[in-house]
Amino acid sequence: MVDNTLDGSQLTLGVRLHDDATFANFLGQKNALAAEKLKALSEDANLPVVVVCGDSGTGKSHLLQAVCHHAERSGLSALCLNLQELLPLGPDVLQGMESFERVCLDDIEAVAGDVHWEEALFHLFNRMLDNGHQLILSAVEPPARLAIGLRDLASRLQHGIVLQLALPRDEDRLLILGTRAERRGLVLPEDVSRFILRRASRHTGELLAILERLDESSLREQRRLTIPFVKSVMGW
Rank of each mutant, 00 (worst) to 15 (best):
A21S: 12
G14P: 08
P189A: 12
D3M: 13
E118C: 05
R151L: 14
A209F: 12
D7E: 13
E36S: 13
S9Q: 15
A45N: 05
D92A: 12
P91N: 08
F26K: 06
V50Q: 05
Q84N: 09
I108V: 15
D215R: 03
H203V: 15
S218W: 00
L135G: 03
H123P: 00
G28Q: 10
P189N: 06
R180N: 09
G90E: 01
H70P: 08
V49D: 05
R169M: 14
W236E: 05
I196T: 02
Q134W: 12
S232I: 01
L94N: 01
V233N: 00
R151P: 11
I227V: 15
S77D: 03
D152Y: 13
Q222P: 00
E109W: 03
L17H: 08
A45D: 12
Q10N: 13
I227W: 05
L83A: 06
R223L: 02
R73V: 04
P88C: 09
E43D: 14
L124N: 10
L150P: 03
K231A: 08
A120N: 07
A110Q: 06
P142C: 12
S217H: 04
G59V: 06
H123L: 13
V67Y: 01
F125K: 01
G57D: 10
P88K: 04
A181T: 04
A32E: 15
L86Q: 11
R224A: 00
S217E: 09
A66P: 02
E101R: 05
F122T: 02
A120D: 06
F122A: 07
E182F: 03
A71R: 01
I196L: 15
Q95T: 10
E119T: 09
S74W: 02
E182N: 11
R173F: 08
L94W: 05
